[in-house]
Nucleic acid binder design. Structure first.
Lengths: 148, 148
DNA sequence: GAGTATTTGTACGTATGTATC
DNA sequence: GGATACATACGTACAAATACT
């Protein structure tokens, strides 16, 4: 039948190891990771493979990399609580590269857009906010309206 | 001195051109892009550079790439409208690689997590939902509570 | 279904540029 | 200025999934 055990690519495996270490606090927030060369030797792989592993963690918003400086674990900022106005609509998306450069947004950080009933739009960095629905009476569960 | 006009990397420039073409409908949703080799010739750059340009568009959720098949413009699915329960909290983040594989999520698609007052969590793909705050009286504007 | 061509994915190497320390 | 470290860009080869005949 040839079930074909899928072996994850080396750079995925390395990203998984590093992610685990970050989660367990082996590399505390704000602290530098080993340099790319060091990681190459540590895992006996090429620079390319290490850089792809780091790219994954960057896309997940776990680390930041800057030219000339060692890669570092991203410090997750404290989240502000934002209360949605009644009848506001919220969507979430990745910023364009232009937006990232203009607003200095790290890779792997989505945007939250809240549009109120007057059409005014507010944009937040997803990792810095927690959106609260307004208190009130009734319904404690999320309702899904499916138009499909 | 030495203002050093910052010249964007070639792969950024190419990504910008392709993004523009996608936005203008030159490459309609669901349709394949030119192959990587064709793009190499078209822009007179190496395969590496083209692949990095495509990686950007992938991170932005604009295209999908699959081994063996040509890269294609992502079709943006119709958004369901989800109504938040009162007192629910919403956060948004990138999925982990594990989640992406397990749930078959394309790169560049954030997750929306809604936690109701009982602690129950619902997860949505960010590009498939629009979250509505419950209707009611009062406040039409978004209130920000800053604890800093 | 079988076989082949196409296309992207993975992984290696090398050289040079540029920002940071 | 020098050393360090990441960024950009070229190249190559083979693997694996898909698409086509």
């Amino acid at each position: 039948m040839n079930v074909q055990r899928h072996v994850p690519a080396m750079y995925h495996q390395i990203a998984d190891v590093l992610r685990g270490e970050i989660d367990r606090g082996t590399h505390p927030a704000g602290q530098p990771l080993p340099t790319e060369r060091e990681l190459c030797e540590q895992y006996s792989v090429s620079l390319t493979t290490i850089r792809r592993a780091l790219a994954i963690l960057r896309e997940e918003g776990l680390i930041t990399t800057r030219r000339g400086a060692p890669s570092a674990v991203r410090e997750c900022p404290a989240r502000r609580t934002v209360v949605m106005g009644r009848g506001s609509k919220l969507t979430c998306r990745m910023p364009t590269t232009t937006e990232r450069f203009a607003m200095g947004i790290d890779r792997g950080v989505p945007l939250v857009e809240v549009r109120d009933r007057l059409g005014h739009v507010e944009v937040f960095l997803a990792d810095q906010v927690e959106v609260l629905s307004p208190e009130g009476l009734a319904s404690a569960t999320t309702r899904v309206m499916d138009f499909a």
